[in-house]
Design a protein around this nucleic acid. Structure first.
Length: 468
RNA sequence: GGCCGGGUGGCCGAGUGGCUUAGGCAAGGGACUGCAAAUCCCUGUACGCGGGUUCGAUUCCCGCCCCGGCCUCCA
């Protein structure tokens, strides 16, 4: 069975389904005020790998991933000098309504997932459509004494009311510095304790994206969104919760406190966090200026699944350092494997190679040891003892976990794509020149074809072309 | 100050108390070719520093240095 590193216990533990045969998973999703960069996608891929691996053992996976389309992310302190949240700021920038912005980037998010072969979740609840449930949850927390209305009208969660606070992140309340991380002191706050956080903020000057509540018109704090949606859609026992490492604190620490206090017991059985992606040595972030999007990868002529393969070549709980070089290397490998798989498919059908299959599955189940799995497949690729038909079956099987579309070119003619206009006559001309041993003309025509995006190579059977 | 994850050959990256000590990219050599490209074959170079444990440490322990991240926006 699948074993994964549990953030809370810092151990590799078996993932267990509280309902037999059904694994419930909640994945923290994107905030849709901008394009997801490939670092975000690495985390979303983590959940996809977990799901695919669990399904190998016959588990059904019920996966919920939230869409944060309520922009009021900063809850206690003003993040920028204007105090304007990201979604509203972006809306102003693009001169659109905040909801139009949210839908636009939500669509882009789904496209990016599809490009990386990340299979869709069962539900993508939007925070904006979950406000009543959040309000109910906040009311419960107020009633139970875990939350209070501050002097400023904001509803806060009282961190000290939850004894187990800090167990997930390793932060102890006394070690958290008041106001640390924010540029200025959070002066106008009605908090009783510096580590308390907002569950409901009053609208104040905001007019967009606000909702009525028992405490006045306003908007929810960020952390309460995930508590409400996960409890509603997956129940009060959730087998697995995934997200990026940066969400461990405060987001997941606070979510855990809210959910556990609301239902009276530990809700999430297993917390899994993906480490950050670095790009050329630095954390990928807008502020660093090294953000790479899926479209940047395809614009350079790479298959987006090369990105997926590049991610698979390091472990999820390790910071990975991506570069254009590593993406290109992954692209080369994926092409090589597709070509090999298509060639093996021509051979007589053979049973799967069971030892290799078991090794690949064991690697995935061992805390998603994807580098090991790739190593096993490279070994299989070169193993002369295994019949080509068996290699095909084994790679096809492994691809249900890898998700690299390795069988994409099986059965396709080598020249399937359409030639650009004029290319065919150049090809004919070059073939004639080669017959006449006019190599100067042959080289010139090869350059002209290259300019059209057609690359030519010469084989014993004559010239072959492909689109670059 | 608190909490994490790391430092492996030109680069990226697995892994390991001793064994033929991954793999990829790049480089060099060869085959093929009119030349290229592509493909195939072959080759080299490692474990941040100092101590300790041990018959033996890149691997375990301690200290140090360095890198990256989180500490109330963040995947």
């Amino acid at each position: 069975m699948l074993r994964l590193t549990d953030t809370q216990t810092k151990t590799v533990r078996e993932v267990t389904a509280s309902t037999p045969g059904l694994l419930t998973v909640y994945a923290c999703g994107p905030t849709v005020y901008r394009y997801a960069h490939v670092g975000n996608l690495r985390t979303f891929l983590l959940t996809d790998l977990i799901r695919r691996t669990a399904e190998r053992r016959g588990l059904r996976v019920k996966l919920v991933q939230n869409i944060t389309d309520v922009g009021h992310l900063q809850d206690d302190t003003a993040i920028d000098s204007t105090g304007e949240d990201k979604l509203l700021a972006q809306a102003r920038l693009e001169d659109k309504s905040p909801f139009a912005i949210a839908r636009f980037y939500e669509d882009a998010f789904h496209r990016d997932l599809a490009a990386l072969n990340v299979r869709p979740a069962d539900a993508y609840p939007r925070a904006s459509e979950w406000i009543p449930s959040m309000i109910t949850l906040i009311e419960r927390l107020v009633a139970s004494g875990n939350a209070y209305v501050g002097d400023d009208g904001t509803v806060y969660f009282a961190a000290q009311s939850y004894d187990a606070y800090g167990q997930l992140s390793g932060n102890r309340l006394e070690d958290l510095r008041a106001g640390h991380g924010a540029t200025g002191e959070s002066a106008a706050t009605g908090k009783r304790f510096h580590a308390d956080w907002a569950l409901w903020k009053l609208a104040g000057a905001h007019r967009e994206m606000t909702w009525d509540s028992p405490w006045g018109a306003g908007f929810p704090g960020w952390h309460v969104e995930c508590s409400a949606m996960s409890l509603d859609l997956l129940g009060d026992t959730i087998d697995l919760h995934t997200g990026g490492i940066d969400l461990r604190f405060p987001h997941h620490e606070d979510e855990r406190a809210q959910s556990n206090c609301a239902v009276g017991h530990e809700v999430v059985g297993h917390w899994v966090h993906g480490e950050h992606l670095l790009f050329e040595g630095r954390k990928m972030a807008k502020s660093t200026g090294n953000v790479v999007l899926v479209e940047d990868v395809t614009a350079r002529g790479h298959d987006p699944l090369a990105l997926r393969l590049a991610f698979l070549s390091s472990r999820y709980r390790q910071q990975a350092n991506l570069s254009w070089e590593s993406i290109a290397a992954a692209d080369a490998l994926i092409t090589r494997w597709r070509t090999a798989v298509a060639a093996w498919a021509e051979s007589p059908s053979e049973a799967i190679a069971p030892a290799y299959r078991d090794e690949v599955l064991a690697a995935f189940e061992d805390d998603l040891d994807t580098p090991k799995a790739l190593q096993v497949l490279r070994r299989l690729e070169k193993d002369d003892e295994v019949a080509p038909g068996a290699k095909f079956e084994t790679f096809a099987w492994a691809d249900t976990l890898l998700g690299l579309d390795l069988a994409r070119t099986v059965g396709q003619p080598v020249v399937a794509a359409a030639l650009p206009g004029g290319a065919q006559s150049l090809l004919d001309e070059r073939a004639a020149a080669r017959t006449g041993k006019d190599f100067a003309a042959s080289d010139r025509l090869r350059d002209e074809l290259a300019a059209l995006g057609v690359s030519v190579k010469d084989t014993k059977a004559g010239q072959e072309w492909s689109l670059a």
